[in-house]
Design a protein around this nucleic acid. Sequence first.
DNA 1: CCAAAAGTGTTTATACTACACCCATGA
DNA 2: TCATGGGTGTAGTATAAACACTTTTGG
Lengths: 234, 234
Amino acid sequence: MRHYSGQRRMLLAVDCIIFGFDGKDIKLLLIQRGLKPEQNKWSLMGGFLQPDETLDESANRILKQLTGIEGVYMEQLHAFSNINRDPIERTVSVAYFALIDIHQYETQLNDEYHAEWFLLNKKTRLIFDHEDMVRLAQKQLRYKAALHPILFELLPEKFTIPQLQDLYEGVYDAMFDKRNFTRKLMSTGLLIKMKGKDKSSSKKGAYYYKLDKKKYRIKQASFLNFVSKAEKFL
Amino acid sequence: MRHYSGQRRMLLAVDCIIFGFDGKDIKLLLIQRGLKPEQNKWSLMGGFLQPDETLDESANRILKQLTGIEGVYMEQLHAFSNINRDPIERTVSVAYFALIDIHQYETQLNDEYHAEWFLLNKKTRLIFDHEDMVRLAQKQLRYKAALHPILFELLPEKFTIPQLQDLYEGVYDAMFDKRNFTRKLMSTGLLIKMKGKDKSSSKKGAYYYKLDKKKYRIKQASFLNFVSKAEKFL
DNA sequence: CCAAAAGTGTTTATACTACACCCATGA
DNA sequence: TCATGGGTGTAGTATAAACACTTTTGG
């Protein structure tokens, strides 16, 4: 037997929700769709699953095509399968979300795709069910970041505590007490204080920190509690 | 335009990891596969996604075919896409996991499929990548149950605290202090004490409780802390 | 010298852990 | 009457929350 008979084959797509942080705000990378239908409308970066690749490989290929970057944090989010989600043809799409450091890559954007960073809360109309995908990704980001230290993926090698706090406050759309925030952060043992200071946002300057990468890899698999109960969900 | 051109269509399958609890142990519902290849080997219950259904609908249809039951807790787990996961033909499978009360349904099993309940830790060899699916489902069950009160889905309407504790201990393969466990449980406000007692497992008998369904629906969306940090993951 | 952001401690309340004895009953 | 499992309380520790002043320095 070479095939299953009597079953219909379908298109499988992969769409990437790409989050970035510019030091102040959380942003979403969108492209102007080249294909019809909905040509020139804003859309997530996506593509079709190829015969010789897994979904993970496909998502990484797509991310690389658009941004030129590889090896970033990426996880499978959800498969979307509404029958008419793509008006042209039945297509099931598996959404992935990725976290990248904007600064490292903003110059690498591939112009061919007319990509742009959008503020996450500035609701841009997207094609198909891409808005559902973004909503779910945002929910998942909050969920995950409340328990695991994944938001470091959005920061450059060197970062300051106030930057980190801005990031968490952006993700949860909430304000945190900086004393309690700093204490929690330090209690993880994940941060290493560096010599220099970042003076770009104050006269006094804020110390740079970097991640203790060894501990980071271990702790990713375990729970943390960055965010208080009430704030874990909106 | 009626179709996307130049893209290959593929088979999409849905496989269901069905967990049950018999009052003592957590079990997994497996079937003897009717189709070749691997005919007569044990397998998850699965099927192909049909043109007129979403993945959620497909998973529910498959569950109903096998067990006759509907309306149980079910969530999408993950899409599995290894290129040769099915040796016959490239097939991407979306796994779902379901929680059902064994007692309510054990008589409804459809004999056509030679279904049987297996102890979760008794490692039965499964076809394809179904063991990966089960492992991931088990991990997800632990993750979710540490934060949300989903394990009630495995119990009948009326249940006792010791049953509930057996259930949690089974899921986490750990022992909990019954005083602390009871206190945590009661502090959720989700349980309503009933008149009768279950005398099937002791002479004194244990009080029956039922869920406060209204509060349950609200709390499912929020965090709980049934399990201590150390035990959230194995 | 002063505006603006960085950095730092203490107190209180809540939640978690460890731990041991009495109760009810059927056999 | 006794073996079996069910039910209950407390004290100590750890974690989280609320809260305000001092430091640094470029302009």
